[in-house]
Each structure stands twice: as C-alpha cells, then as structure tokens.
Design a protein around this nucleic acid. Structure first.
Lengths: 113, 113
DNA sequence: TTGATATATAAAAATATAAGAATATTTGAA
DNA sequence: TTCAAATATTCTTATATTTTTATATATCAA
C-alpha cells in the first residue's frame, strides 16, 4: 500500500480544475488528446503536460493507436474522488459541546466564541 | 451547494501533509496550537498559518478558552477524505479492452502498448 | 503592573506550480 | 522521401504556496 505521503501527493496532483475535468471525461471512456482540446479551453501542449503529469503519477495510462494516444483511467481512487466532489454536504459537523480535551486547556471554560 | 471550482479549491487546501495530519488529529477531538506543535515538526507560526488557512476555508473553527484556541472540525468532507486516503486500493482499473471510443481514433487498431 | 505563556500576523525568502512559446518526435499518407 | 497531423518535450516566465524570521496581541499569574 502506498505511503500516506504518496497518497497526499496523488491527491494534490488530482486537485486541479483542468485535471479533474480530464479525469471526469475519462470516466466516460477512452479519449485522445484532440478530444480533450475540444472542451478544455487550453493549448495542446498544456493538455499534454497535464496528461503527462497524471501519467507520471500512475493515475492514467494510454494505448498507442497510430499517431493517437488513447488515454484511459488506471487508478481506482479517481472514481471515489469524483464521487466525493459531487457529494452534497448539507450540514456542518456539530461543534463540540463540552469537556476538556486539550492537554493544557480547560475548555469549554471561559468560552468566548 | 458549493461550485465544483470551490470544491476543488477545498481539496487543494486539504491536500497538504501537515494539514492532513492536523485534520487527522482533529478527528480524535479538540486540540489547541501547542498540542499540534508537539507532534508536527514545524514552528509555532507555521502551525498557526496552516490552522488559519484551514479556518479561512471553513474546514475548521475554534473556541477561545482563555489564552488557548481550541480547534475543532467543521466541514464533514474531512472525514470522507481521510477515509479515502486510508482506503487500500489493490487493483488498478482494467484497461479498456476494445472498441473505438475516441472521435478520431480507431483504437484498438494497431495497438502498440 | 509586570513578566511569561499562547497564539497570531506581517514581511521576506525559498520553493513549487502553472502556463506559454518554441521546437521536437512519431507516424500515416501522398 | 516528403509533408502534415497528433502529440510530446523543453525552456522560460509568471504566479502561487510554503516556510522562516521577527514582531505583535491577548491573557493569566505573581
């Protein structure tokens, strides 16, 4: 299993608006670079850079079809992350109501706010 | 519901090794700044900066107890992200086996790798 | 009051990330 | 062969993030 450090790195790599769009698109199926260019409003080299970053981290991979590179998802965490981003969190967590929990503090002692 | 952009920003804020450690610790209960200093190997101002960033994004909040600030979790996405980071993904996603899916490509045509 | 403790803030320095521009590589087709 | 298409790579510049250093604020205790 990947170390926590590695998994956080991965999360960082995925947490980018362009890359999320790429990944969302890939959940629907194989795509080549030109396909991405059409709906991402960025240059071809920039698309390639994002794709190559994602590949370097093992998030995606590709097959070569002539002069096309057909990209596809490889890391199963992607679907979970996308689901998480789509999830609707309505409530905040309840503020802790009582009791000293910190080592030094006597919270909720003279609680000010 | 937050926009996708906002949710990606939030993911970016959370995807940092120090901040993940802070959040993991907070899932166990309320903590003040000095508590964090003990197990994060960084300076006090740096701890404060990470805490204030997390607070700015509504991930955490605090109560004041005398001269202590007792921090606690506020955004429920945190528990989900931590669960995700702990999850053990054994298998890669299966490589797509067939069929032209890209607009231009005839994948798996002359598939090279 | 005064000093010490807990914490925050601001400015600067160090570092990382992103995007842009130019160019290279590979392959299929003429 | 040679050309064009599809894509990648490299270098540069711009920008953002992170850490460090110094200093400030608030509160408690003597």
């Amino acid at each position: 299993m990947r170390s926590l450090g590695k998994r956080i790195e991965l999360l960082k790599v995925i947490a980018h608006s362009v890359r999320i769009k790429i990944l969302e698109e890939l959940t629907k199926g194989v795509k080549c670079v030109t396909d991405f260019e059409e709906f991402l409003d960025i240059s071809q080299p920039n698309v390639s850079q994002h794709l190559s970053l994602l590949r370097r981290y093992g998030v995606i991979d590709y097959y070569i079809d002539g002069r096309l590179r057909c990209y596809f998802l490889r890391d199963p965490i992607v679907t979970d992350i996308i689901r998480l981003l789509d999830k609707d969190y309505k409530e905040e967590l309840p503020a802790p109501a009582c009791c000293p929990v910190t080592k030094k503090g006597k919270y909720p002692g003279k609680r000010r706010r």
